[in-house]
Design a protein around this nucleic acid. Sequence first.
DNA 1: GCCCTGTATCGACATCCGTCAATATAGATC
DNA 2: GATCTATATTGACGGATGTCGATACAGGGC
Lengths: 120, 120
Amino acid sequence: MATATLERPKAATGGRCCPPAAGPALAEDEAAAYAGWFKALADPTRIRILNLLAQSEDAVCVCDIVDHFPLGQPTISHHLKILRDVRFVVAERRGTYMHYRVNRACLEEFPDAARRILNV
Amino acid sequence: MATATLERPKAATGGRCCPPAAGPALAEDEAAAYAGWFKALADPTRIRILNLLAQSEDAVCVCDIVDHFPLGQPTISHHLKILRDVRFVVAERRGTYMHYRVNRACLEEFPDAARRILNV
DNA sequence: GCCCTGTATCGACATCCGTCAATATAGATC
DNA sequence: GATCTATATTGACGGATGTCGATACAGGGC
């Protein structure tokens, strides 16, 4: 049979270069979920917004956040939306003002995510 | 003096909307370092490559990685470079083949990063 | 030396992302 | 309701990013 020649040739050695190596255990959509999560953290401004919110006991209003960055209000609002979408922060209305605070419950899942990716 | 009118007007209330809120404790470059770190994880393929490498006791050669993804070899090589640049993986030559493995030491810093960002 | 195979790099392309200015929306006060 | 202020949304623009095909580089076998 020609079946043998249908295998991966793998150079002149004709053999494998290393043990079979199982495919990724993470399904594509699970990996995408984690990636979307990390994507929300893949910007210095968002990291610092999170850090700023984490330093305050109570929620902080948007205008106060804007004051701490050399960026326009729409840009900050944009970043806050991204952080909201992945639930890293939660917003709360107080009259005209919007107050934001970190969602610790969500961020504490981090070590678990690392463990799952590295399956340790 | 007109000094009072130089303060933030803050609506008709004339006062602050919330307690002062310290700026972010993370310096801009430190935040950028963390962001660059997360950026390397902000892609499903890279997450799954990491996961694949983490499942194997010993290092895995590039051709084996390529076999597990519906992407071209140059693309996988590109992702591996990004993971190498942030030291999430390390490469090792064995003859013609390149073998990659996860750098656990580096990835284990994760919980610390989370703690530093959330200053808990 | 030459060729073959595995990996990295380059150049191009489409898409995504961060930023801004302008505008829309929501709530409070009058 | 009219107006004012805080926040969100929109549209546009430049730069980054993921992907590919083509090519360059490296090491082993002849």
